[in-house]
Amino acid sequence: MARIPERRSLRRRLRPYFTVFDWPLGLVLFMLMITSVIIMSSAGAEFPDRLEHQIRNFLLAFAVMWVAANVPPQMLMRLAVPIYTVGIALLIAVAMFGIIKKGARRWLYVGVDIQPSEILKIATPLMLAWYFQQRANANNWKSFLIAAVLVLVPFILIAKQPDLGTALMVASSGFYVIFLAGLPWKALLGMGIAGAAALPIGWSMMHDYQRERVMTLIDPTSDPLGKGFHIIQSEIAIGSGGMMGKGYGKGTQSYLEFVPEQTTDFLFAVYSEEFGLIGNCFLLIIYLMLIARGMMIAANAPNTFSRLLAGAITMIFFTYAFVNMGMVSGILPVVGVPLPFMSYGGTAFITLGLGAGILMSIQRHRKLVQT
């Protein structure tokens, strides 16, 4: 008598599709996204489609994260050089044929407008992690010098667009890999001294609007209705939130539209006004949990490539949060860096979702190796 195949339960059939996720990391990301939806519904009240589009961005980032989580680190290692090479080629194409918007040549039309510099935020640490994996037992001055060149090439191409904010993000992502690979403290000290000595040269090479941002940071009241308006209104919003905040939907600075870009770069100012210091502490704890989980994944990674890549991606999350909160609070110049997993924006969500997916892939395949 033929044996009837046992029907698997729905749970067992769906389980393979969800085992790719690292649940501690996924829980932290879920908390950030829920917080984003709550504050976006308030900050974007004057933009009816903004919340709907943000949810779409969440779903798109989730899809990218799921795909990345299914790609083994060994495959990522093989793709490192091609992805980096394609990214550099696209940056060169932008310099030659790119679309100019608002005085900057940052986009390339390939049926739709794309911003290739975003690719390098992941491609650069991916390439450097592969490079140091190949030279795991031969890290010397020559190795670090070649790694620095791999970082400088995209940095220069992006800075010339001009897009100094993205260029610095790409450079920092590459620096984290070099640092985690064992860059000597003497080299760090030398780089610090050289950087300080080169400040006058760097100042002379900056564009006028970049120098104005630095001067505005030093004294925003010098042009309170112009260049300093963003910082001043943001600081007022943060300060007026007090300890407990004014309450959800009751932020006067955002409601009266004094806070600029309140759903994107300055979302943190709206959040601070409505939820106050207590809310800010809660948000900081969530970001600390995100960074702690990423560092734990990096520390337990099975090889040099995975360890360096996971550490760099985690520090990218830290840099996003630190720079955004710093610029909104008036301690850093205003640059186009969103609050990770919270600010409105499609491109940034794809990049961040890709990074989170890579972390999950590293964690998942470490478990598979152990079993």
Rank of each mutant, 00 (worst) to 15 (best):
M75K: 14
S343V: 08
G44C: 10
I156P: 04
A198W: 08
I331K: 05
S173N: 12
G326Y: 03
R12V: 04
G330S: 07
P72W: 05
K142Y: 08
F229W: 15
L199K: 06
S306G: 12
N70E: 13
W107I: 03
I4K: 14
T264Y: 06
V67M: 13
A2F: 11
L339S: 05
R78E: 11
F58W: 14
I158A: 08
T124H: 07
L29M: 14
I350Q: 13
S173G: 15
N303Q: 10
L79N: 09
W130T: 02
I146S: 04
L32A: 03
A167Y: 10
W107S: 11
S41W: 09
F179R: 04
L332A: 15
K101I: 13
G239C: 01
F21P: 01
F62L: 15
A138S: 15
Y320C: 00
S172I: 13
F144G: 05
M31W: 05
G355A: 14
N137F: 09
R3E: 15
S204Q: 12
L199Q: 00
R8I: 00
G346N: 11
V335T: 15
I297R: 09
R293W: 04
M289Y: 08
P154G: 01
P154L: 07
F62E: 08
T19P: 00
S240W: 06
E235N: 14
F97Q: 14
F179S: 09
P260D: 10
L199Y: 06
A321R: 00
I331Y: 06
L157P: 04
